[in-house]
Nucleic acid binder design. Structure first.
Length: 107
DNA sequence: TAAATGACAAGTG
DNA sequence: CCACTTGCCATTT
C-alpha cells in the first residue's frame, strides 16, 4: 500500500454524484502525473474492498474504456442514473461533468 | 532479478 | 478525427 494508492482511493471516493474524473487527472492530483495506469490497477484491486465509485472514472476521451465487456453497458446505465447524460457516441461531456477537487466550477 | 502487463495519456503525422 | 509511437510505473509472472 503506497501513499499514491491511498491518495487515489481518497480522490475517487471524493468524486460527487453527477461528476466524473479521468485517469490522468486522478493521477495528477495524487502527485503522480504519470500514474494513470496505476489508477487503473487500483480501481481493479480496490473497488470491492473500498466500495469505490469506479463508474465515475473514465479515460481522457470521455469514454468508458470497459465497454467491450458486459459491465461496460451497466456502467453507462449507472452514470445515467446519477444524472450524467451521454452524447450519441456514448461519450461523456467532460466540460460539463469533469470534477476538479481544487478549483471552483468553471463554465 | 528480469520481463511482461494494464479499464491510460500525450504527442505526432 | 484516426492510427501509431512513446512514456510510465506498481504489480504480477
Amino acid at each position: 500500500m503506497t501513499l499514491f494508492t491511498e491518495q487515489v482511493i481518497n480522490i475517487i471516493k471524493s468524486i460527487p454524484i453527477g461528476k466524473v474524473m479521468t485517469y490522468g487527472q486522478i493521477a495528477k492530483f495524487a502527485d503522480n502525473p504519470r500514474g494513470a495506469r496505476q489508477v487503473v490497477r487500483i480501481l481493479h484491486t480496490m473497488t470491492i474492498k473500498y466500495n469505490l465509485p469506479w463508474h465515475r472514472v473514465i479515460n481522457s476521451k470521455g469514454e468508458i474504456s470497459f465497454k467491450n465487456y458486459d459491465n461496460g453497458q451497466k456502467q453507462i446505465e449507472m452514470l445515467i442514473q446519477e444524472g450524467i447524460c451521454l452524447n450519441e457516441d456514448n461519450k461523456i461531456d467532460l466540460i460539463k461533468y469533469k470534477f476538479n477537487p481544487f478549483y471552483t466550477e468553471l463554465s
